[in-house]
Each structure stands twice: as C-alpha cells, then as structure tokens.
Nucleic acid binder design. Sequence first.
DNA 1: TACAGTTGAACTGTACTACAGTTTTCGGCA
DNA 2: TGCCGAAAACTGTAGTACAGTTCAACTGTA
Lengths: 224, 224
Amino acid sequence: MSALEGLEVRRTTTAQQLADGLSERIMAGAFGPGDRLRESAIAAELGVARNTIREAVRILELTGLVRYEVNRGAVVIAPTPEKVEALYTARERLETAAVARTPRPGQLDAITRAFHELEDAARTGDPRAIVDRDLAFHQAVVALLDSSRLDEFFAAMTQELRFYLTVLSKSETPEEVVAEHAVILDAIRLGDRDRAVAEIRAHIDTSVRRLNEMLVERHLTNKS
Amino acid sequence: MSALEGLEVRRTTTAQQLADGLSERIMAGAFGPGDRLRESAIAAELGVARNTIREAVRILELTGLVRYEVNRGAVVIAPTPEKVEALYTARERLETAAVARTPRPGQLDAITRAFHELEDAARTGDPRAIVDRDLAFHQAVVALLDSSRLDEFFAAMTQELRFYLTVLSKSETPEEVVAEHAVILDAIRLGDRDRAVAEIRAHIDTSVRRLNEMLVERHLTNKS
DNA sequence: TACAGTTGAACTGTACTACAGTTTTCGGCA
DNA sequence: TGCCGAAAACTGTAGTACAGTTCAACTGTA
C-alpha cells in the first residue's frame, strides 16, 4: 500500500473548489463585511455557470462567512458589537470549562507547543501569523474538553473571528499578546484551575473590549 | 411600533419552504438514515425544478440532517456508535458546565417549567412528545450558560439527536424519564452543583448506553 | 433646495434543457 | 454462489430564459 501512499484522485467538485477560493478571498479582504456576492459577475469572471456559483456560495454559508438574504443573495457577514459579544461569550464558556478540567499529558504538550509557536510568530511580527497562532492556542485549550463536536464548533467560530480581526486589522504589540498567553499557560501547567479560569476571563474581556473599540472607530471613519 | 407587531410579508423562497418540508419528512422517518435524496425524483414529484431542489437540500445541509457526498448527492445522516458518542460527549460538556453556574431566577423558572411540561407529556404517554420535552429540558439547562451561540449550537445537536431517537424508536417508560430528570432539577434547585454535575453525567451515560444498544439491535435486525 | 414619486437597469429566484462522467443495477457467465 | 460488464439512473455543471425585486438615478413639485 505504501507505494500508493498519498495518491488521490480529484474527489472534489467545482463548486467546492470555488467555495474554498471564495472563502480565501473573503478572508483576505477582497469582499468587505456587508458586501454582496454578485453571482453573474463572479460567474462571468471565473468562467463557470451561475448555478455553480450559487452552489459554491451555499457551501460557503456552511462556514458562516456569508448568509443569504431573500432577493439580495449572499452577503458577507459584518461584525456588530452584539455579534462580537455573543462570539466571545461562547468562547469564554468553552475555554473556562476547558481549563477547569484535568489535562492529559499530551494535551498539555499541545498547548505548550501552541504557545511556543505563538512566540515564534510574535518574533517575526507578522500580524496575520500572530492571529493564527493566537487562535490555534485557544483551539488547543478547547481541545481539553475532549469533544470533537465542540472542537469543530470552536473552529467554525474561530474562522468567523479571524475574519473580524482581519477586517478590523488588530492592534496590539506582539509582546503583549505573548505575555497575555504566557500567564494562561502558566496557570494551566501549574494546575491552578481557578487562576486559569480567571486569566481566560481577563484575556477574553480585554479582547472583546479592544475589538469593540476598533468597531466604533471603523464605523466613524466609514461615516465620513 | 406595536401596531405593526408580528406583521410580516411572505419573505421566504421556494427553496426554503422545500427545505423545511423535507426536514419534516426526514424527521418523520420518510427517509431513513443513509438514504439518498434523489433530486430528479423529488423535483418531479413536487413539481419544481431540479436546481431548486438542490438549493433546498443545501439549505438542509445547514441543519446537519444531510450531508453531500461527491457524485452521490445528499445522504441522510446515519447514527453510528462513534457519532452518538461524540454527540453525547459534547452534550455532557455543555450541560455540566451549565449546571456549574449560578442560575438567575428566571432561568431556574424556565427549567422548572420545562420539567413540568415533561411530566405532562409523560402522562399522555406520547413518545414523540416526551422526547421533545426531554430535549427542551436540556435546552433550558444549557441556557444557564447565557450564550446565544451555544444555545444555537445545542439546538442543532438536538435536532440531530431527535432524528436518531426517532429512527431508533426509543424505549423507556415515561416514569423513568421523569424520575431521571427530577433528580437533576432537584440538584439544580438546591444549588448543589457537584450533585447536579454528577446527575447530568449519570443521565447522559445511561442515555448513550441505551442508544447504542438500540443501534446494535437495529444493525442486527437489518442484517437479517 | 429638499423631497416624494417614477423609471429603468441590475440582480435574484426559479424553471427548463442538455450532456459528460459516476454510480448503481442487473442479467449473464463462470 | 460470486464475479463481470453493459445498460440505466443519477449527479455535477453549463447555458438560456424570464418574472419579480431591489436600488439608484431622474423627475417634477413644493
């Protein structure tokens, strides 16, 4: 079997590929929040039929990056204070529940590794990479819950959040980011559950506050 | 604004209506787990175009009741021991995290109310109603987490679970169901978090075990 | 100048047709 | 019985068409 290791045929559809591609573009900011995805335009530009684009966008909808409005088609989600709040509340519940559990050794290692990768990213200073590692760290924390379904759910939220962060072009020095996560990791490693919970809370609190500030700011500049 | 309360025009598409209808049929058992939803057949029967059915099924996919397989189209999800396990694990994590929190008065009332409705349903003996109230009780418990996103996530899982239960035609006397939930409610009302967590665990444990037994049974009878 | 009403272009939602490539079925063959 | 290959059934995609909706520019009016 090893001679055929990794060999695989196409096993995907045009619509799926389009969905992936569109997802990337949206994440990269090619479409802003609230923008409509015009089917005919996209179809023409990419040389595919409109119904294929429609399928692709429906697939995209699964990831939560766009939603359909009747007679307006697919619209890129837009962050609002309420949505950000709801997202972070869910995160807080999951992450605090996670750190309240006794970690298995492998899980601790995974979190520690995630932290070190965050440090590495911070050194390079690439904001995009930092955000990625930041979210990966939290994903590793949620993995403490030992639930694949919750892992998936969190991953979906992460995707949404990453988009918001991209849109709002986060501001925070890499050192601060690392420091904030270091205390969380510390508490987890020491087995100090209460402190871990408190640190997670504090971390999420400042995050949501900062995000909302950026939101108002963006709103104001958009008005002008 | 109250003069226009509840007023709303049609605001829905054919595909959405079809999705709702199909969802009902699937839940009612018109399509068994693993069954394919054949587009042309459905389209012809309902007198709509095939791409409209396709859209409807994509919408259905959002609820998790079907998933797409390349070149096989939409397939109704089927319970497997692994899936049931994963589903219940996620439930356990959420519900135990929920009862570990201090409930607001309104929340306690909601749970109590849900319990009484479960009792009422148990008296009628209608299995379908009992399952509905059972799940509603747990939804009320998860609401303790105060997170709309988690409420939605749990609701989606509930939908999936309800389907599994329908398929496997659950066996358990109404009295047992009520008794199991009564102890949970009790623990919550008394503010005894540890016991609440333990009761939730026990409840979910027996549930998953019973479901898996029914799964094996079904598997065996299907083989014959 | 501000504003309500009208109009037309741009789009979405849906239908229908077509066809290549895949899967499934089914009858025969060993 | 179990395997094999051809036919049938079905999915994925393309392309066209059109009614109904949305939106923005235009018009006339106060």
